[in-house]
Amino acid sequence: MRKLFLPILGVVLMSGLTACMKSVDSSTEQYTQNDTDIKNYVTQSNAQWTPSSTGLYYRTLVAKPTAKQAAVGEEVEFTYKATNILTGAIVDTTIKGYPVYYPLGVNSILPGLEEGVSLMREGETTALLIPSYLGYGSEAKKNLPAYSVVRFDVTLNRSRTQDEQINEYITAQKFMNIESTGTGLRFIRTKEVAGASTPGIGQTLTIRYKGKMLRSASAFDSTGTSTFDAVLGRNTYVKGFEEGLAKLKIGESATIIFPSTLGYGTTGVVSNNRYVITPYAPLRFDIELVSAK
């Protein structure tokens, strides 16, 4: 296929939370120094910290023991402040009113931060002491030299399933007359043509389309004002697109929204070592069926 679903636009990961990782052996000077710095910090804090098997230390500051725990594949919404544990200087922080949204389990943010968030429940605030081999590694950041321990104070606002993401998106967009299918597809016909014919399997459809992730402002792929010829029923495209396209009559338009089980699943789409479509991402497509032959 010439264009549909190719990774051509956009980077969706938070650059401030990624790092050029360099493996650190437990016998190295950096590992030993990180371990010493963390243990000194824990002692001086006069508080209870819990070590994990990876070297992360965490401490719950605000507990919500009966709240929902974050799960792999869900979109987590959180805020954070990162500081240098030796100086207390701020390394990075979210801006008020602008939380981070991230599909948990993608393993594309700092390993220590992802591990910490996975331990949290909605509404909790947790402090994380992240050694360099689970953090920024050899990369120096503002107020943080290379191979340094960083503290993250994280508040987990929400963890949402794909169905929850889709339903909230539909409500926010004020879509009406939504048809939900047994597969999880949501079909919203935006232009109806009375008496128009429905194309059959094997026909070549001339279409226009635009595809985007629900939280992305820009499309990852689009025909623009041009058109594209797609053959119906050959399972050439992702399941959600095939299903939505088959429901259109000639001359009609629709918005289709579907979960990653009908899209790119747990793999996503990668270009230049960056996700253009993340794993576990629900997708929206706006499609116009121009003609069929």
Rank of each mutant, 00 (worst) to 15 (best):
D221E: 14
Y237T: 06
A246S: 15
K249F: 07
M213S: 11
L205G: 04
F241P: 03
L262P: 05
L232Y: 05
F285L: 12
S253V: 00
S253Q: 14
G244C: 06
S253C: 02
F241G: 10
K210P: 00
T255A: 05
N273T: 03
L232A: 13
R234Q: 14
D286R: 04
Y280F: 15
S216N: 09
T223I: 06
K239Y: 07
A254C: 03
V231F: 03
T204P: 00
T261I: 06
K210Y: 08
N235R: 10
A281C: 14
T206C: 06
G263C: 05
T223F: 10
G202I: 04
M213E: 03
A219F: 15
T204Q: 08
G211T: 10
T267R: 11
K247G: 04
G265K: 12
E288L: 12
K212I: 00
V276I: 15
F285A: 01
D286C: 01
A254T: 02
I250S: 08
T236N: 14
A217M: 05
A254H: 12
I277F: 13
G202D: 10
R215G: 12
G265M: 11
A217T: 04
A219S: 15
K249I: 02
A219Y: 15
T225V: 13
L248A: 11
F241C: 07
G244H: 09
I207M: 02
A254L: 13
S218M: 06
T223C: 12
K249Q: 12
Y209V: 11
L245Y: 09
K249W: 05
G244W: 07
V270S: 03
T225A: 09
N272I: 00
S260P: 04
I277S: 01
G211W: 14
V270H: 02
E242K: 12
A246F: 06
A219Q: 08
R208W: 10
F285S: 01
L205R: 13
G202Y: 01
E288N: 15
L289F: 09
Q203N: 14
K239T: 03
T266E: 14
K212D: 01
A217F: 10
I277Q: 08
F241R: 06
A217L: 13
L232P: 02
S218E: 13
S260Q: 07
P259R: 03
R208S: 13
Y209R: 06
V270P: 01
G244P: 02
N235I: 04
G268Y: 08
E243M: 02
G224Y: 15
G233V: 08
V238L: 14
L289W: 08
K249V: 03
Y264W: 14
T225S: 12
V270K: 11
F228Y: 15
V238P: 00
L283A: 05
R284H: 01
T267G: 00
P259E: 14
S222E: 13
K212N: 03
T204Y: 01
L248Q: 11
A217Y: 11
E242H: 09
S218N: 08
E288M: 12
R274N: 14
G240D: 10
S226T: 11
